[in-house]
Simulated assay, not measured.
Amino acid sequence: MSCPPPSPEVCPQVCPPPPPPQPCYVKPVMRCLHHAQTVRTLWEAMLLCAVGGTCVYFFIGVPRKAAYRDFYARAEFEDWGDEMARKGLFQSVPKEGLKDNQQMKSK
């Protein structure tokens, strides 16, 4: 008795698939990490302070300066002072001297 001949379709040799490529993640830099984060935070803080200061200057300071300039350009300080003196709000201005001043203005 003889062995049957081997069948021509023996299990074909199958290679295992190659392993997937490693992902291309950037490794974190651990050396001087705290220093780098602190420097970055300080630069961000300085930039925000500069932007905030500029906004305050242009949106609050410039209009306020213009309002004061207009007020002092149109103000009548001598008339206001005379009116307050007539009401007796100034202790250093005698009322007698004020009456003489009014008579001089009316002439």
Score class of each variant (00 low, 15 high):
26 V>N: 10
26 V>R: 13
26 V>T: 11
27 K>W: 05
27 K>Y: 04
27 K>E: 11
27 K>S: 11
28 P>M: 02
28 P>V: 00
29 V>M: 08
29 V>K: 09
29 V>P: 01
30 M>W: 13
30 M>R: 13
30 M>F: 14
30 M>T: 14
30 M>N: 13
31 R>E: 15
31 R>S: 12
31 R>G: 04
32 C>T: 05
32 C>S: 08
32 C>M: 07
32 C>Q: 09
32 C>G: 04
33 L>R: 08
33 L>D: 02
33 L>K: 10
33 L>Q: 13
33 L>F: 01
34 H>P: 00
34 H>Y: 10
34 H>W: 07
35 H>G: 03
35 H>R: 13
35 H>T: 14
35 H>V: 05
36 A>R: 08
36 A>Q: 09
36 A>T: 06
36 A>D: 13
37 Q>C: 02
37 Q>G: 00
37 Q>S: 01
38 T>Q: 14
39 V>M: 02
39 V>A: 02
39 V>I: 07
40 R>W: 03
40 R>H: 08
40 R>F: 01
40 R>Y: 04
40 R>M: 03
41 T>N: 12
41 T>F: 09
41 T>M: 13
41 T>D: 11
42 L>S: 04
42 L>F: 04
42 L>M: 15
42 L>T: 01
42 L>D: 04
42 L>N: 15
42 L>Q: 15
43 W>A: 03
43 W>C: 05
43 W>I: 03
44 E>S: 15
44 E>D: 15
44 E>F: 06
45 A>M: 03
45 A>Q: 08
47 L>W: 15
47 L>C: 14
47 L>D: 15
48 L>C: 09
48 L>T: 08
49 C>Y: 09
49 C>T: 10
49 C>W: 08
49 C>Q: 08
50 A>D: 11
50 A>L: 12
50 A>T: 10
51 V>M: 06
51 V>D: 03
52 G>P: 00
52 G>N: 11
52 G>H: 06
52 G>C: 12
53 G>E: 02
53 G>W: 00
53 G>Q: 02
53 G>D: 01
53 G>N: 02
54 T>S: 14
54 T>D: 14
54 T>N: 13
55 C>L: 15
55 C>Q: 13
55 C>E: 11
56 V>N: 07
56 V>I: 12
56 V>L: 12
56 V>S: 10
57 Y>G: 06
57 Y>F: 10
57 Y>K: 05
57 Y>M: 10
58 F>S: 04
58 F>R: 04
58 F>Q: 11
58 F>K: 06
58 F>A: 05
58 F>I: 04
59 F>V: 15
59 F>Q: 15
59 F>G: 09
59 F>P: 00
60 I>F: 09
60 I>C: 10
61 G>T: 04
62 V>Y: 06
62 V>D: 03
62 V>R: 08
63 P>A: 03
63 P>F: 00
63 P>Q: 04
63 P>T: 01
63 P>K: 01
